[in-house]
Structure formats: C-alpha cells, structure tokens
C-alpha cells in the first residue's frame, strides 16, 4: 500500500475515533455548540434587539434586527467550536493516548487531521442547526441559490481555519484548562470586537480601526451581505483570503507543536 493510502486510512481512523467521542459527549456538545448560540440569538434579538435594531438605522435597510444578527450569531457558533477542539487536542496530548500512537507505525499527521476534520463537521452541523432555529424565530434570508453556496463555502472555510488554529492552541497550552482559556479570545473577544452585533463604524475610534481590519469582520460582512441580498463586492474574497491565511498559520503552528509535544 502506498504512503498516501496509509495517510488516508489513518486519518479516517482518527476521524472515526473523534466521531465516536462526539457521539459519547453529544449532550454536552448540543448545549455548548447549539444551545449557547441560540440563547445568544434570543437575548440579542428579544432583549437588545429593539434598541440595537433602531440604532442601526440605514444599515439594516428596513429589515428586522434578526436579519442583521443571524450572520453574526453564525460566526459566534463557529468560533464557539474552538474551545472543544483545543480541549480535545490537549486531552490527547496530555494523556497517554498520543504516546501509544507515536510508538506505532501510524502516519504522523493523522491524529490532528481527525481532530480538525471532526471539529469542522461539528461547526457545520451547529451552524445548520442554529440557522434552522433562526428561521423558526423569524429570520428571513433573501439569498439566492448561488448566495447560499457562497455562504456554505465561507462557513466551511472559516470553520477549517479556526479548527487548525484551535488545534495548535490545544497543542501549545500545557493543560486542558489552559487550552480552554486560551481559546476565549477567539470564541468571545474577537466576535464582539467585529461587526458581529453592531457595525464597526459605531465603535470608539481605537476599537473601530481594529474591528474594521480584523478577520472576523469580513467574514461576518460577507455572510450578512449574501444572506440579506445586499451587494458584497470583494468582501467574500477578503474573507476567504483571511481564512486561508489563518488555516495556513494554524496548520504550520500545529504541525511544529505536534513534533515538539
């Protein structure tokens, strides 16, 4: 069998393992990956939505705040998957399982490939579930079929990028608790310091520059534009470029950290 076949086989085995893990932790995952974003959606829409929607003015183009909000919640949903990914990687690396694998003739990259693969899968499933709930709550996207494909593409690319970055974080943090804490900037801070809930223009000057130029903003803006049927210009390309850059950095960082760990 060729090296490539082994690589594919071992990665598939690790994917199988991670899927088993996810199934065993299903209740926990449903709460953290789907319920939490849904609660955020409800909080922002029902409780803050009146004022926020009013404050949006022209930006909302007459649509209810939920239409503005859902793309942001989607990004939060994806980013929310970072913690579990980093934790899972960290548990493997701090536990004995990785030693067993390293002492076997297993393809080196397979373990991380499995983690990242299932991480992306979880993020996609959670995004679909949150979108479905949003539709029930009155979210009315105006996207064409082509737009929907673009949305799925960006969601997948963003998930892939964050999954590699979280895997790297899980590898370099020395403990499981540390892994969880270190993803908080990704899953919590960056979404708030972007156009997730309100436009970057409305923020204080210092923050505004950061919010306008950090990767979450083009991702949210493209999803929002595509879903609300507004013109998006070149923003999706900028978003994809960011995703490619983050994925590459995350991948290289993770591979280097795995060799050292």
């Amino acid at each position: 069998m060729s090296a490539l076949t082994f690589a594919a086989q071992d990665s598939a085995t690790m994917l199988w393992r991670e899927i088993k893990h996810s199934i065993r932790l299903l209740r926990l995952l449903i709460v953290s990956a789907i319920l939490v974003p849904v609660v955020m959606l409800l909080l922002f829409d029902y409780i803050l939505g009146g004022t926020l929607g009013h404050g949006l003015g022209d930006v909302a183009r007459g649509a209810p705040y939920i239409d503005y909000l859902v793309p942001g919640i989607l990004v939060m949903t994806i980013a929310g998957g970072c913690g579990p990914t980093a934790i899972n990687v960290s548990m493997d690396i701090t536990g004995g399982f990785v030693d067993r694998i390293r002492a076997m003739a297993v393809v080196r990259g397979a373990l991380l490939a499995g983690h990242v693969g299932v991480s992306v899968l979880r993020m996609l499933v959670a995004s679909a579930a949150v979108t479905a709930v949003a539709l029930l709550l009155g979210f009315r996207p105006k996207a064409s079929v082509g737009d929907w494909f673009a949305v799925v593409g960006i969601v997948a690319a963003f998930s892939f990028a964050l999954a590699w970055l979280s895997a790297a974080i899980g590898l370099v943090t020395k403990s499981v608790a540390g892994a969880n804490g270190s993803t908080l900037p990704l899953s919590f801070l960056l979404p708030f310091l972007s156009s997730t809930f309100v436009p970057a223009d409305s923020m204080p000057v210092g923050v505004r520059w950061f919010a306008a130029n950090q990767p979450f903003t083009p991702v949210v803006d493209s999803l929002r534009g595509l879903l609300t049927g507004a013109p998006v210009g070149s923003t999706p390309y900028l978003a994809l470029a960011w995703c490619a850059a983050i994925a590459l950095v995350g991948y290289l960082w993770a591979q280097a950290a795995f060799r050292r760990a």
């Binding site: 893990h21 399982f97 030693d99």
Partner: peptide
C-alpha cells in the same frame, strides 16, 4: 504499555 494509562477513556 507505558507507565500511565494510554487507554482512550471515551471508547
């Protein structure tokens, strides 16, 4: 078989 368990605790 290492000194510390290398069993996958979720399987």
């Amino acid at each position: 078989t290492g000194q510390f368990s290398s069993v996958d605790d979720l399987l």
